[in-house]
């Protein structure tokens, strides 16, 4: 800084900064810093969760995990084979129920109902059901099935999961069907195809990738659901009976019970189960994302 300048304006800030008043500049810097930090926090949390699962989960990994059932309290060893199988059965049954109902309901909203009053109401309530607390769905299925049947059962668990999966499928199906241009439907109708034929052969086929994505998303959503299974499928430390009555072993509830237990081998199994379930779910959501991206880009 030369002497002349100092004499002329002793308090003047350097030329570069004078374009923007310092208060504005500080606010700007703070915003940039804060939002970058917020994003870093988000990334770090996901990283930390994955690290925790890998560090703790890998320790418990062994082939026995996939062959042995969960051990009783205090007994040594064991695996989580029964819980894995139970989870697969419950999730599969849930999706099996939710898919036809969800796709048909989505079809109604996008095709038959489109602008009707009832479709608006159903669309709105479906969106609410989509974010409804899953524990309330557990209470509902408990009242509906467990209490009258007098026992916890895999059926009740599957119904609870189906209720959670359905709104996801309804929503994606409707969104995807709406992307199919109306001209195609008109072309089908002009050829004399009845509405059901137009829907099944034209609109469904056009939107098939999107509908499948919805089903995968629903699968990812229910695979880790714990709260609704607590009062419906519960858990069990042995192989379950094929009629699915009684407590059905499943990964989420197993993780919940074992992680908070005092037995170290139970905790170990909980970590292994947690790693398994999280990796599966993250993989499913990534797959769904890529399917939907390629579909939209087409």
């Amino acid at each position: 800084m030369d002497a002349q300048n100092t004499v002329a304006a002793p308090a003047a800030p350097p030329l570069k900064a004078s374009r923007v008043r310092s208060g504005r500049r500080i606010a700007d810097r703070v915003l940039i810093l804060a939002s970058t930090l917020a994003t870093l926090v988000g990334i770090l949390v996901l990283g930390s969760i994955l690290m925790m699962l890998i560090v703790e989960g890998v320790k418990g990994f062994s082939p026995l995990l996939f062959t042995e059932p969960t051990p009783g309290p205090g007994s040594e060893g064991g695996g989580i084979a029964n819980a894995i199988l139970g989870s697969l059965v419950l999730t599969f049954l849930g999706i099996l129920v939710a898919t036809p109902v969800g796709v048909m309901a989505g079809t109604f909203l996008a095709e038959y109902g489109r602008n009707s009053k009832i479709a608006d109401v159903i669309r709105f309530l479906n969106d609410i059901l989509l974010s409804a607390p899953s524990i309330l769905i557990g209470l509902f299925v408990y009242t509906l099935m467990v209490k009258p049947m007098g026992s916890y059962s895999g059926w009740a668990g599957a119904v609870a999961l189906a209720i959670i999966a359905t709104p996801v499928i309804v929503r994606t199906t409707e969104d995807m069907l709406r992307l199919v241009p109306a001209t195609l439907r008109e072309a089908g109708a002009a050829l004399g195809a009845p509405p059901s034929k137009v829907i099944t052969a034209i609109t469904w086929r056009g939107a098939s990738a999107g509908i499948v994505t919805g089903i995968i998303l629903a699968l990812a959503r229910i695979a880790g659901e714990t709260a609704p299974l607590l009062f419906t499928a519960l858990n069990n430390n042995s192989w379950f009976s094929p009629n699915l009555m009684g407590g059905i072993p499943n990964l989420p509830v197993m993780i919940y019970q074992f992680a908070l237990s005092p037995y170290s081998n139970w905790q170990q199994l909980a970590w292994a189960g947690a790693l398994l379930i999280t990796v599966t779910i993250l993989a499913l959501s990534i797959v769904a994302r890529f399917v939907i991206k390629s579909e939209r880009a087409r």
Binding site: E56, A259, I277, I281, S285, I286
Partner: peptide, 24 residues
């Protein structure tokens, strides 16, 4: 990638958040 990482936070099951919260 950043967008996707943030969105993946939504896919992590709530029980895993519970374990992370309690143990880490």
């Amino acid at each position: 990638p950043v967008s996707m990482t943030i969105e993946l936070l939504a896919s992590v099951p709530s029980i895993i958040y519970g374990m992370w919260g309690l143990f880490i």
